[in-house]
Design a binder for these strands. Sequence first.
DNA 1: CTGATAACGCAAATATTATTGCTTTAGGAG
DNA 2: CTCCTAAAGCAATAATATTTGCGTTATCAG
Lengths: 183, 183
Amino acid sequence: MSTSPVQKRPGGRSAAVLTSVRNAVEELVKEKGRERVTIPMVAERAGVNPTSVYRRWGDLQTMINDIATYRLDPKRPIPETGDLRSDLTEWAREIIEHYSNPTNAAILRGGAASAGDTQSDCLRNRRAEAGMLVERYGASSPLTVDEVIDGLVAPIVYRVIFLPDSLNNDSAKDLTSRLFEGR
Amino acid sequence: MSTSPVQKRPGGRSAAVLTSVRNAVEELVKEKGRERVTIPMVAERAGVNPTSVYRRWGDLQTMINDIATYRLDPKRPIPETGDLRSDLTEWAREIIEHYSNPTNAAILRGGAASAGDTQSDCLRNRRAEAGMLVERYGASSPLTVDEVIDGLVAPIVYRVIFLPDSLNNDSAKDLTSRLFEGR
DNA sequence: CTGATAACGCAAATATTATTGCTTTAGGAG
DNA sequence: CTCCTAAAGCAATAATATTTGCGTTATCAG
């Protein structure tokens, strides 16, 4: 798994480069799709020298992964309504919301292409969150983490990638309902 | 959607080039992953001049797509046991089997990256097949096509892409069982 | 405030990928 | 068998991407 190198001088100019590169990547991925983005392209859009990008990240893959990871608002509070079903519905809604942003969707697709090498931090986090939600209700929980992944995350991700128009306002509720049938 | 150009002389040498390129693509995709394969690479491995590849397919995406389409055994018989649940279990097993081939898995991942542009023929076919399976049992069918996609195809594809080690011999049965709970 | 140096920018050198014009080979209609 | 020409090969060129050496800027420890 490749991550952004440790910055010994994370302030001022370096930070500026970092954020403008991030913005550039997001814009370009949204505009052209992950496949058609190159490092020189990103550098130009960011108003930064390509060399700086090469030296900091080495290659596009590492860079995209870094950007994607950054994007995940990893420490946001996860839903806590007191009821697992409501929690999951809300959680699913947030995920769908996240991927309704074309940049995030494009980055997910990009991540898919190189998954295996570079496991997506994004989805690992989702699994961790699902674990927290389920375990909150201890042994009495009617669902396992895998069931949540298969029943919510997988369909959402599948649709984001392959059927982008098939998600709507009811999707979170529908999928969650399905998950609780027979429980 | 881009397809291989019509061959006015499909015999002999042309055919040889075609098959050696196909083999080369599959080998390389398996070895290095879709991301790290280039046309010159494929040409060299295939013992073919890069120009021939450029002229026939134009770009990597088109080429991969052509190869992938070729790979999908589109006209194989789909399961028909007389029982929907058995049919679906067997069908899921076939899909998992298909993607247990590293080349097919890598091509799926590659397809994800450019989905949106180029909708995967592969997955469209899966949906058609699911439709046939479900409709075979007419109005009495306990499942909709979407439920089959969400409950079988999505988890399988999700796992193939992001959690390649999580599929095993029981997965088809497990997912299908889950699908029939409460029905 | 100052000095050491991380990180950036610039420019030149390489390497890689894609295009183009022309020549050669060989599929297949007649 | 012969001829026409599709498709492959070859080589030179153009376009892009990557690497490298070196000078410059400016962060941050002291």
